[in-house]
Write a protein that binds this DNA or RNA. Structure first.
Lengths: 147, 147
DNA sequence: CTAAAACTTAAAGTTAACTTTAAGTCAAGC
DNA sequence: GCTTGACTTAAAGTTAACTTTAAGTTTTAG
């Protein structure tokens, strides 16, 4: 069993944030001795799940719902499974979006490398809509196609 | 040239958000006729860059700085290049993190599939620290190694 | 037994990125 | 010329996720 200070150290999360999570119902079965929180294996695993669900873009209130399902027992396995499936879809979509962002950043890096080499953006602007080097044309098109 | 309503439609961004961006200095050279904003090609491209930099995790105040550099001219090519390089690093790191998150989500999907098939988590908990199927062991380890 | 460190609470404060409101101005069609 | 829809502003409001504060309690070390 750990104190809030030990968990704070272990996960590099401020104790105030852990208390906030507790207040929000993210550790529904946490024990206490003399008013002081005792984090057990259950809470440590909960915190790993919290970090995962947060990273997937889920809000605190929905993480609370998940934790409530865990307390409810086997009857909520389906709901929990469905939640993780939905989060997977969201993360996969976010990965696609981030890869597009990376394409644009790579294009911009090349763009400024070229502008620096040329001393101005004039040459670049002359080739701009569709006379770029093939490698760059792909990146450019993927960022400038239909909004 | 476009009105704010046309750009709002085009990018699916509320007009109030576009006005907010303008107030924050994200369109430093935008023209007006009779008080009304006219978005030209410069602003359309700026908006694409804004969306890219935002998606990379950059804050509005720093996007404003970038736009100011663009107005300053060729002397800031180096700074702009550096910004995109830094953003690339940040996005690459975010991609790594998101892939780890995806690993955990995949593990949890398998976990609940198994729990549903078994009717309880008992079998699962018995194999839990290190007796999982090899495929799952990898995912599990990557989410439970040292905090 | 006592002092200090670590814990507790409720309530107020912070921050970023918008969003809404209220009151008014501009532009297009009839 | 007038109505209507789209635009304008400044200022206040919203939301999520914390963070800080102030006052007090519990645990630990000597």
């Amino acid at each position: 069993m750990y104190t809030i200070g030990q968990i704070s150290e272990m996960f590099q999360i401020p104790a105030s944030t852990l208390r906030y999570y507790d207040r929000e119902g993210l550790f529904p079965e946490m024990e206490r001795t003399g008013g002081i929180r005792r984090f057990g294996e259950r809470e440590v695993e909960a915190l790993r799940v919290i970090e995962c669900l947060k990273a997937s873009g889920l809000e605190i209130r929905d993480i609370k719902q998940f934790m409530a399902w865990c307390v409810e027992g086997p009857s909520t396995y389906g709901l929990r499974r469905q939640l993780f499936e939905t989060r997977k879809k969201a993360v996969e979509e976010e990965l696609r979006q981030l890869n597009k962002t990376l394409d644009m950043l790579n294009f911009k890096c090349w763009y400024y490398d070229t502008a620096i080499a040329d001393g101005s953006e004039d040459k670049l602007n002359a080739m701009l809509p569709d006379k770029l080097p093939p490698k760059m044309q792909k990146l450019y098109d993927s960022c400038h196609s239909k909004e």
